[in-house]
Design a protein around this nucleic acid. Structure first.
Length: 276
DNA sequence: CCTCCATCCTGTGGGC
DNA sequence: TGCCCACAGGATGGAG
């Protein structure tokens, strides 16, 4: 569920609490939440007793440096993951992992669908994993349009599916990809290699614009059961969406009803008039 | 190398 | 009200 703006919002909430904190305990209640770990039994041993030196992010992956980079603690929220601190309220259903530390209240990893996961890698293990093959971060390392064009050159797959490919640029998901394409007036089914220079320029500009606007609004909460800020509030970007989830509603540019297509097994919302 | 597809899970909302 | 189905913010591994 959470895309870059949501994960960045979470990162900013974790940063002041966890930076410098020492992990004192780990309670894994659903083993499935620990995945992609070279040896799953190592997770507690690698985590407990270590100090968080930096709270980072690459695309949708949270990456927390432990003991100045000796290990990297990776968390991914999947489709329904939430990170929140124990606020003395009732522990939510599907609190699958509890992390104790000396920087404040326990950290709760809540995830009904369990598509999220966590793992603790050495930098070497991380580098050779698929996480190490992530493309540049869509916010912090967004390539120039010319370099984007080189990535897309010759590709016959739809631009929508290529925007979702985290090896090209890391951070866009289904909502923000649709928003970027709408603002760029590009049809989601266009072949990636068919974009011209001015379209690439618009695409790049709108990736930045949409992600920054999403972060400024605290992300997108589609309903109050999935993504929420760590303090429990809902993100406010939903009302600013121009395409995603608006099938049948008027295009905010030209009034034409927004249509829905399935591309790469995901819903795509677009304006049939503005986006060509 | 590239593209497409099924799969991992649980919950919700719409239609009947 | 209850049942059934479609669908949901993601990533991966394997087939072709």
């Amino acid at each position: 569920m959470p895309e870059l703006p949501e994960v960045e919002t979470v990162r900013r909430a974790l940063e002041p609490v966890l930076t410098g904190a020492r992990i004192t305990g780990l309670d894994v209640r659903r083993e499935r939440m620990v995945r992609r770990q070279p040896n799953p039994a190592d997770v507690a041993a690698r985590l407990v007793g270590r100090r968080v030196s930096q709270v980072g992010r690459h695309g949708k992956f949270l990456q927390l440096d432990l003991d100045d980079g000796e290990f990297v603690w990776v968390l991914h929220l999947g489709m329904s993951g939430r990170l929140t601190f124990d606020d003395d309220g009732a522990e939510p259903l599907h609190t699958n992992v509890v992390v104790r530390h000396d920087g404040g209240p326990d950290l709760w990893f809540v995830d009904p669908r369990t598509f999220g996961f966590m793992a603790v890698f050495t930098p070497e293990e991380l580098a050779v994993s698929t996480i190490g093959a992530l493309g540049p971060d869509a916010l912090w390392e967004l390539p120039e349009s010319r370099a984007l064009g080189e990535q897309l050159d010759g590709r016959s797959a739809s631009i929508k599916s290529l925007l979702l490919d985290q090896r090209i640029v890391a951070g866009l998901g289904n909502i923000y990809a649709d928003e970027v394409l709408h603002r760029s007036h590009i049809h989601p089914r266009r072949a990636g290699g068919s974009l011209d220079a001015s379209e690439l320029t618009a695409l790049r500009r709108n990736v930045r614009l949409v992600l920054e606007a999403g972060i400024a609004s605290g992300g997108t909460s589609l309903n109050d059961l999935a993504y929420l800020l760590p303090d429990g509030r809902a993100g406010q970007f939903l009302m600013k969406l121009r395409a995603y989830g608006r099938e049948g509603g008027p295009c905010r540019t030209c009034g034409t009803p927004i249509e829905r297509l399935v591309i790469a097994q995901r819903s795509s919302f677009f304006c049939p008039r503005c986006q060509t």
